[in-house]
């Protein structure tokens, strides 16, 4: 299981002397339908563990990117059949350049490890994934695209 911490979504957890706890969570995509569920799950888990009151603070800035995913998180994603994102170059303050015809960096197949893979679609079944295919084992797989 990949944890929210490994995904880089937890920006901080603070307890006070009275047993209250504040969790700072960074959302991934603005349109991600799981955001509210994640928030409620975190609050429910803390309440079940005896903390009260529980407060979840949403942190949009600095924004979450795939660079926040830890090494352990990447390993677990691959174990679950989702190819982890590659490195994303840091962007300065300027405009985002439009780069056409760039070769996609090779993505290793999370099933067989083969590197003879190809992108089928830039957008996969969820907001955060692209659809890829392995030419060696012939299996399709999801790739968490780097943003």
């Amino acid at each position: 299981m990949v944890t929210l911490g490994e995904l880089g979504m937890v920006r901080g957890v603070e307890c006070d002397a009275a047993g209250g706890v504040v969790v700072r969570l960074a959302p991934t995509y603005a349109g991600c339908p799981a955001l509210a569920e994640i928030r409620a799950d975190v609050a429910a888990a803390l309440r079940a563990a005896g903390f009260a009151p529980v407060r979840v603070v949403t942190v949009w800035s600095p924004p979450w990117t795939t660079e926040w995913i830890s090494a352990a998180g990447r390993r677990k994603l691959a174990d679950a059949g989702i190819a982890p994102p590659g490195p994303v170059p840091a962007r300065g303050g300027g405009p985002v350049p439009l780069v056409l015809g760039a070769r996609r960096p090779a993505v290793a197949c999370p099933r067989c490890g083969g590197r003879e893979t190809e992108e089928v679609s830039r957008c996969g079944a969820s907001l955060c994934t692209a659809l890829w295919r392995c030419r060696a084992c012939r299996e399709p797989f999801e790739h968490l695209r780097g943003v």
Binding site: Y29, A30, W60, T65, V96, L98, V99, R122, R145
Partner: peptide, 16 residues
């Protein structure tokens, strides 16, 4: 914050 996060999303739309 909405704009900053939106930049990454819309840059992807533009590329697509």
């Amino acid at each position: 914050a909405v704009a900053e996060r939106g930049v990454a999303e819309v840059a992807y739309h533009r590329l697509f």
